[in-house]
Amino acid sequence: MTLYALDLFGTAVFAISGVLLACRSNMDFFGALVLAFVTAVGGGTIRDALLGSTPVFWIQNTHYLWVILAAVIVGLATLSWMVRIHRILQIFDAMGLAVFSIAGAQKALAFGAEPVVAIIMGVLTGAGGGAIRDMLAGQVPMVLRQEELYATPAIFGCLFYLLLLSWSVNPTLATVIAGILIFSTRMISVIRKIALPRIALPG
């Protein structure tokens, strides 16, 4: 139940980030709704399609759709306040990244996927929706920018989660530890502006 509640929380947070980007891009209500939707469930939808988990999770459980709609309404109603708390939203976004990444890896393992596939599915679940959001808004996806780490914390977090399971650590404890690793790594990169080194052509 706790993981499910965190999953809904992450859905709401990602949906609000979609609303904010839609407003910054001068979109209307429908545009905000579309960006909120793809941000919140885009990665998980692709994951379920690749794993053969159909119908996808938000069709099986429409609570996700209601959470997205509520997040859009709240986001638009408190827009001026939301803009002033950018750092708080970054914290929420890091929480969502942590929850979604581990949840994605867990679902892949439940479908019998190999560890490397579970890591890919975790990263896709955590960062895929944001990538779709950014592309629809005409921006370079956050996972491809050099300003700070985004996908990298998810990769290491999912890898560490699998290692903990292989060491017979309690799955709930492994989820908490790996989630904290993803969240803390993401926030440190935001605060310290840590990014992967750029690759430049010689000469």
Rank of each mutant, 00 (worst) to 15 (best):
I188E: 06
L149F: 15
L173V: 04
R47I: 01
W167A: 10
I85S: 10
Q146N: 13
L144S: 07
V34L: 14
T54Y: 11
L164Y: 05
P55V: 06
L20D: 02
T2Y: 13
I102T: 00
N170P: 04
L163H: 02
F156C: 02
S53I: 01
V41A: 11
P55W: 06
M135P: 01
G157C: 06
G157Y: 02
F100L: 14
G52V: 03
E114T: 11
L69H: 03
F29M: 15
I188Q: 10
C158G: 01
L144F: 15
S53A: 14
A5Q: 14
I120T: 08
H63M: 13
G52S: 09
E114F: 03
L79R: 12
R47E: 07
N170H: 14
M121T: 01
G179T: 00
I73L: 15
L35Q: 03
F30E: 08
D48K: 02
M135S: 12
D93Y: 09
I120K: 00
W66V: 14
I194K: 13
G52T: 02
V72G: 06
Y4V: 12
A36M: 08
L35D: 02
G44V: 04
L20G: 01
L79K: 08
Y4K: 14
F100T: 11
K107C: 03
V83S: 05
H86S: 13
G42E: 06
I119Y: 00
A22P: 07
A195M: 04
G157T: 00
V74S: 08
M95E: 05
T172W: 10
W66Y: 15
F57R: 03
G43P: 08
I191S: 09
T2D: 11
L173T: 04
T11H: 08
V83T: 10
A154D: 05
N61L: 07
T54L: 15
L65M: 14
A5I: 15
A131C: 14
V83I: 13
G18A: 06
I132P: 00
W58I: 00
Y4M: 12
P202E: 09
A151H: 04
H63E: 15
E147C: 03
V83F: 02
V143L: 15
F183Y: 15
V123H: 04
L109N: 03
A77G: 11
L76T: 05
D7G: 11
F183G: 07
K107V: 00
I88C: 09
T152I: 12
L163V: 13
Y64C: 11
A5V: 13
I16K: 01
I68F: 08
M142T: 14
V169I: 13
W66F: 15
A15P: 04
W58E: 02
I85D: 02
F100M: 13
G52Q: 08
G96A: 12
I182R: 06
V116R: 02
I46M: 13
F9H: 07
N170C: 07
G157I: 00
K193I: 05
T175H: 10
A40P: 10
L109Q: 09
R186L: 09
